[in-house]
Design a protein around this nucleic acid. Structure first.
Lengths: 190, 190, 190, 190
DNA sequence: AATGAATGAGGATTCATTCAT
DNA sequence: CATGAATGAATCCTCATTCAT
């Protein structure tokens, strides 16, 4: 009864693993956040995802495709959150507060997102094939802001969010919340 | 004067090479701009600098030291330019125009600086040992802005410059100069 | 007749594909001519034949079987042509001209055949299991020549054809037709 | 006296190994003869030469350079032997006998040379960068033959040697020596 | 009968670093 | 002081083959 040929899940038991591709992409983002794009290798991702090395190039044509998919997912996730934040704002005042919250809270508590964002920008700065990701991201952000502000103000706000977020994360003595509130007010004229 | 075969220009002609360390640092920045920190290796830098491979680990304890020195130089160079821009401004109006010029012109025409900046941010976002570079950079920028604006406004302006510069470089349809002018006016209340 | 959706041309349209094995063999020769035996892989052949990868090991026990079948076909094809050439010769003079034509024209205009021949010889030189192909080829050539020449002369002619063909293909300044004519005459005493 | 730090050849004792490059090339030919160009890999050659894997790409830019050097050496070696054979022949009769000996003895007793020759031809048939090796080889052979025979005859003889050698090696029932003698006589009119 | 998913072994190559000179 | 030689680890990627379906 315990012989091998009676085992419904023989040896490794890992013949088919649907969703593996998805899992690899998720894990890849973790690895990037951990060791950077520079340190991200097939080996490391495979190990982190508990997947054989050969699986990597089976599911992805190469590192480039993997990175592209990973950052596409990242961009989509962040954009989703951004949109949700803006969508729940009832009026301009609430929208302003949402923007402040995004700057002061969202990215602040996730070092992970900060790192990933910079890694993506670095990639996009050199490799145009990653621009479509940043483009889509920026486009969605702006569209979400345009629900509450005119196009020009939306652009400015978007850039302000970018700059304040970066500086907040890198600065040795980060600005307080009131600076953010004030800056948003100046731009939006609220 | 010392040895018998007092040849002023010895055979290989590269016996003593003062400034070699400096040259390596400069070339390293070029290499980073070209292939990214990820693709920057001793070999590549050595070749680009026309320096023997062994020279790399002789002058630098390792890649980390080399990168650190390279980005320190980069930060200093960019800060110098920034300071010079701001120093020549006679009054607040001129200062505002200088800021606009920095955003709309300086980084715009050098893809190189854009790439290097992001590479540095990416490094700093993960590795604290690179924070001192970004800190010094930000501190100098802010001090330069504080010549003309109050500290809070200076902070905001600094962040705005950051965000607008990035978006200008990555955006598929970059904003026009007038958007920059308007944004600077709103923040500075000019 | 069996299932309900008795579609005579089922969805994918490639349910049954008689002659697929044949097509794979043909394509395999093209691949070998293109990238050499060394570069010929299941994957490459499968892709070139527009056949799923799994199909390769279904139809062939392994690369060796595939190569064997491919070169068998190649040898047969070339031998057929050789035989046809010799068969149409009415007398010894015509036979001599046929030999000249084979050397000076047949292989000359197909780089493909030259490459394939050498690949086969290389295989046969090391692996005895490919000797039966070259043996059959040589036997047929000799038999075809023996229609017009005595056995010893046939052997010599066969070797001469071999050598002149190779040198014609590899030589930087190939010999002219008259050299071929002369050599054939000397061997056959025509 | 026998302590480790008194050992002039510390630990591995393989710091500098002049002539290593040469040894690799020689070993490479052995490996090719053994498993073919197709089966020749850095790993296999490194192991056969008792050299670390990293040593391979240190001494050679890649497989192509290694193969090129190996076959260049092979071609030179064989040509040398050929030239020596022909140089020692005092008159035309002796030259004819030398040619016979080359065909009937030289290659016959070295399966190795046969295999290597075919591997080289296969390479040269597809990759023009290997033609210079075969060209040099053929040129030297012909020049050596022209010491004793007129250019046209030399060409024919060269081709005959090629063809008879190949057939002798591949044939299931190889021709006897007398066929070779006869063929050479017919071509040279001796 | 046929195939897509999967994988471990091995492919060439690049690398930072060590060390004898 | 400076460097060329050397190497083991790690890089991405390709491969033949197996197997559940």
């Amino acid at each position: 009864m315990t012989t091998a040929d009676a085992d419904p899940q023989p040896s490794a038991g890992r013949r088919t693993d649907p969703g593996r591709r998805d899992r690899i992409i998720d894990v890849c983002l973790d690895v990037i956040a951990d060791v950077g794009v520079a340190g991200t290798s097939h080996r490391r991702v495979a190990e982190a995802a508990d997947v054989p090395l050969g699986s990597m190039t089976y599911h992805f044509s190469g590192m480039n495709e993997l990175l592209h998919e990973a950052f596409t997912r990242f961009g989509t996730t962040v954009s989703d959150q951004f949109e949700r934040r803006m969508a729940t704002a009832a009026d301009a005042a609430a929208a302003r507060e949402a923007v402040v919250a995004i700057i002061a809270e969202d990215v602040f508590d996730t070092q992970r997102d900060l790192v990933l964002t910079h890694e993506l920008y670095t990639l996009a700065a050199r490799d145009p094939s990653f621009r479509d990701i940043t483009n889509a991201w920026m486009a969605r952000s702006r569209r979400a802001l345009e629900r509450h502000f005119d196009p020009t103000t939306a652009r400015m706000l978007d850039a302000l969010i970018e700059g304040l977020t970066i500086h907040r994360a890198l600065d040795i003595e980060p600005h307080g919340r009131e600076v953010v509130v004030d800056a948003v007010r100046r731009i939006t004229g609220g």
